[in-house]
Design a binder for these strands. Structure first.
Lengths: 127, 127
DNA sequence: TCTTGACATAGAGCTAACTCAAGGTTATAT
DNA sequence: ATATAACCTTGAGTTAGCTCTATGTCAAGA
């Protein structure tokens, strides 16, 4: 798969794909004789994973570290697992912070609803 | 309340408090004759709100816009409400993206668990 | 053959949200 | 009286994560 196809498929800009590669998130991409990238199935799976993690705010540097462990292979499983656990725990906290924010917003939205309703009533009764 | 107290109470750096003020998030802070800030109850309530919104990633610029509407007062309620609704909807999406990421992480953590368990077994049986 | 379009690299530029540094003033403790 | 600490302002510096620019190569169609 060529870079433009991957870009379309995953809705990630070509620049970003090359940037990720430079940062170590996409190691060992095959290139043909004239240097053109050809993304494999494995590369695509990795891109999907990266996209998911990035959408949740996992830092590029941490992803890079994790992927370098994957490439190292055998013997790094425990460290990899610990990284994922840490990341998950951070996301749980983040999710809760977002939920608190949502709750506060809902509360205020409701208050404005009542204010606007009162104004409407006042208008109708000719104030 | 002085800036250092506010800083401690809300765990926001002094620099950040002044930065927020400059960006319009904390308008009309009272200052004494020698220019020292004195945060009121209202200011503190606003800081708490800002902290909550910032922790969920609401942009400073949007907060600034919202707060300027609050300061404008009467007649801006509908626009304010719409801003909050938009922000809430974005957070709902964000929360869901994070949840998807959490789910993927849980899945992988479990896979690593089984890998490590198998290694342990192999070790015990002398492989 | 010539042009066009998709690819490549290297490195500069951009934005958000802080964070720090330099230099100055004021209130308080010794 | 002086030193210290807490405040002030202005403006520069930092970081992450892209995004853009300049320049060049290469394969395919008119």
């Amino acid at each position: 798969m060529k870079i433009s196809e991957v870009s379309k498929k995953y809705d990630i800009s070509i620049d970003t794909l090359r940037y990720y590669e430079k940062e170590g998130l996409l190691p060992n991409i095959t290139k043909n004789a004239s240097g053109v990238r050809d993304y494999s199935e494995t590369d695509c799976a990795r891109i999907e994973f990266i996209k998911c993690m990035r959408s949740a705010g996992m830092p590029v540097e941490r992803l890079s570290k994790y992927i370098s462990l994957c490439v190292q292979g055998e013997g790094t499983e425990e460290e990899r697992r610990n990284m994922l656990i840490k990341q998950r725990d951070e996301l749980l906290e983040k999710r809760d912070a977002i939920q608190r924010s949502i709750d506060k917003l809902e509360y205020k939205i409701d208050i404005y609803y009542n204010i606007l309703l009162d104004k409407e009533k006042a208008f109708r009764s000719g104030n």
